[in-house]
Write a protein that binds this DNA or RNA. Structure first.
Length: 339
DNA sequence: CGCGGATA
DNA sequence: TATCCGCGG
């Protein structure tokens, strides 16, 4: 998903509290997909209710959203609209990979290879329209605004950040930088270490921030050149040039300055490159609208999660008490401002 | 992923 | 109090 720039840039670790009071435009699809693929049992089975309906996405969204609210962060979830026609091939390929992964998952479970099973299960994840609707219901009960982008959610979120309607984009992908977002925040979770399943290894997962300006300085490229670089590497809208990865692409862009020059020099062609550039430079978006972070409907949340998804009452109650404390600390804060 | 009981 | 580990749904 998206262009991989991780080899070229370095993130600055931050704490969630650094984002307190900030509006973060979150790529909803990216986030839900992350939950759906990672919130699974050892053999790869996602969480589900007694009827077999998957609940992983709802679980992740609920606990994370509560944490963000508790930190005083103002999230707005931006959902994807229609995929661009240029993405059709990528979507088709993904579906094939997903179907293949489903078979390989089953096979790995039979063979008892749980590590492989979990990884294949993650790859087999599919976010359904029902899951998206469930997420929207939960967000509304939590008083968190969400909106539907006409096209790419990442593009809408980025334009909002560029216009100052949001402070940063929240996503695991780098595409928001191509879309011109001034800041990108990854790992929008409580910082900590995470054990890799079936392994004695840990990875640190801490929120990290990346600033567009810093990235461009480091790459020694303009944003337009970075977009051209992404086209060389390969993104959702094209397959890139065989043999050119991030390191080569950045060198070529620095040397030749534009995609046209690189294509001429290397005697290669990227079809519809001008159109793809424009997708990043002029993404289809809806105009600014007022966003409201309303009160949390605690009872509504609890009823919804309990009745539709079999969430346990005691867990729900302890999470809701966190929100109750949040409420009182907020009114405390406004009192402090008053005096 | 995120929680919370277990463990030291 | 900090870290580990396995379950949640």
């Amino acid at each position: 998903m998206g262009v991989n720039l991780s080899a070229l840039v370095d993130f600055t670790p931050i704490s969630l509290s650094h984002l307190s009071g900030k509006i973060i435009a979150i790529d909803a699809f990216n986030t839900l997909y992350q939950f759906l693929s990672s919130i699974r049992q050892a053999d790869g089975t996602p969480l589900s209710n007694s009827s077999g309906k998957i609940t992983s996405h709802v679980s992740g969204l609920f606990y994370r959203s509560v944490n963000l609210l508790q930190e005083g962060i103002k999230p707005v979830f931006v959902f994807d609209g229609l995929p661009h026609p240029l993405k059709t091939l990528t979507i088709q390929k993904r579906r094939e990979i997903r179907n293949r992964a489903m078979e390989e998952w089953e096979k790995a479970v039979k063979e008892g290879d749980m590590e492989r099973a979990r990884s294949k299960a993650a790859q087999s994840s599919r976010l359904t329209p029902e899951m998206v609707e469930e997420a929207k219901v939960l967000l509304e009960l939590l008083g968190i605004p969400h909106l539907d982008a006409p096209g790419e959610g990442e593009g809408q979120a980025s334009v909002m950040a560029a216009a100052g309607e949001a402070w940063a984009v929240g996503s695991q992908d780098f595409d928001s930088l191509l879309f011109g977002a001034p800041r990108l925040v990854r790992n929008l979770s409580l910082s900590g270490r995470r054990k890799l399943p079936r392994r004695n290894e840990y990875v640190s997962v801490t929120p990290e921030i990346l600033e567009l300006e810093v990235v461009l300085e480091r790459l020694e490229l303009t944003r337009e050149q970075m977009i051209d670089m992404a086209l060389l590497i390969g993104i959702d809208f094209n397959s890139g040039i065989k043999g050119i990865g991030p390191k080569t692409a950045v060198k070529l862009m620095r040397k030749h300055g534009s995609l046209e020059a690189v294509m001429q020099e290397k005697e290669v062609n990227i079809p519809k490159f001008q159109e793809i550039r424009d997708l990043f430079l002029k993404p289809v978006t809806i105009p600014a609208r007022s966003l409201e972070w309303g009160a949390v409907d605690a009872k509504g949340c609890m009823d919804y999660l309990h009745e539709q998804f079999d969430f346990g009452t005691s867990r729900l109650e302890s999470t809701m008490s966190k929100l109750a404390k949040l409420k009182s600390s907020r009114s405390q804060k406004s009192l402090d401002q008053w005096f």
